[in-house]
């Protein structure tokens, strides 16, 4: 009974956040909150593969970048009125670019997952990293799309006549998508598919003995996870109006993993808390000292060494 009340309360706070921020005269709050929600989606998607499926992927930033690049590339072609390969017209309609970003990252996740899942353990960690690095270097070398410098978008995509350049509007759109995403994820985790996945993580051989095609289940979970991260990337491209290969850098994959662990592996809302904690910590330390990553490193180390189960476990222990 208590949990729904707490979530409702949190939603109310999130809904009035832009008003509060305007009242408190801190314009940086709304973009920060938008980024937290977007990273929360990405981390929760990674957590679906990592926490629920037991697949430690060190390459999920690739899907983040792909989602972002789909949006930015389509926009650039639309803006320059030059169809891709002279055939496919670009577009700036969010209703097209967002689903397309999800589908394309899903396709990449299918290819990468199908190959990577033939290995396991450390080899799986390393091969996912390898694929992400390949995509990273591919986009670095694509001079047509900005290469190392990335690609900026003159405007965000158009969506139902809303002005997404207006920060509160972008925030509310992200908030709505976030709520829908987590509602969907909750259903997925509690579905029979989610239960099977949980079983595979605990004991793959036993699940196989029960007659379950574990490879196919894991692959499907990996694809769904990649799609979620891709969606987050597409939203990020709209929020920042800029994409670059940096979105796929391996340290970005590491950051997503940190958010998952920080919040709590294998929990529904944990990664969202983890994203919030990490980004708030970064912002706070960066405002305090130029050497903020020293503090961040120390905090991370402490969290890994001394806490089991992340922030969400701490919260649960308190209540």
């Amino acid at each position: 009974m208590r949990q729904p009340v707490a979530i409702l309360l949190a939603l109310v706070v999130l809904a009035v956040l832009p008003t509060l921020a305007a009242w408190a005269g801190s314009p940086a709050t709304v973009p920060l909150a938008t980024r937290i929600l977007i990273y929360g989606i990405a981390a929760a998607s990674l957590n679906f593969a990592l926490g629920y499926g037991g697949m430690i992927s060190f390459g999920h930033a690739a899907f983040f970048g792909i989602g972002g690049y789909v949006v930015a590339i389509l926009f650039t072609h639309w803006f320059n009125e030059a169809p891709i390969f002279g055939l496919i017209p670009g577009t700036n309609q969010l209703l097209i670019t967002l689903p397309l970003a999800i589908v394309v990252s899903g396709l990449f996740a299918a290819a990468i997952g199908a190959l990577s899942l033939r290995t396991g353990g450390v080899q799986f960690i390393m091969i996912t990293l390898a694929f992400a690095q390949m995509l990273f270097f591919l986009f670095v070398s694509l001079k047509a799309y900005g290469g190392e410098d990335g690609l900026s978008m003159r405007r965000p995509d158009a969506f139902l006549g809303l002005n997404l350049r207006d920060r509160p509007t972008m925030y509310y759109l992200t908030l709505v998508i976030t709520v829908l995403f987590f509602a969907g994820l909750r259903r997925l985790v509690r579905s029979s598919f989610g239960t099977v996945l949980d079983g595979i993580r605990q004991n793959e051989r036993r699940m196989e003995a029960l007659g379950i095609a574990t490879y196919r289940h894991k692959l499907f979970a990996f694809i769904l996870s990649g799609m979620g991260v891709g969606m987050a990337g597409a939203l990020m491209a709209n929020a920042m109006r800029y994409v670059s290969p940096d979105m796929m850098h391996w340290s970005r994959s590491g950051e997503l993993m940190i958010m998952v662990i920080l919040g709590g592996t294998g929990t529904l809302l944990g990664p969202l808390y983890g994203a919030a904690a990490l980004l708030l910590l970064e912002t706070w330390l960066a405002g305090w000292t130029e050497h903020w990553s020293l503090g961040e490193g120390l905090v991370l180390l402490a969290v890994v060494m001394f806490s089991r189960g992340g922030l969400i476990a701490l919260l649960r222990r308190r209540t």
Binding site: I125, I258, S293, G297, L298, L300, M305
Partner: peptide, 9 residues
């Protein structure tokens, strides 16, 4: 991975 990543930072 995470602990040694923190060491890098």
């Amino acid at each position: 991975v995470l602990a040694t990543f923190a060491i890098i930072l």
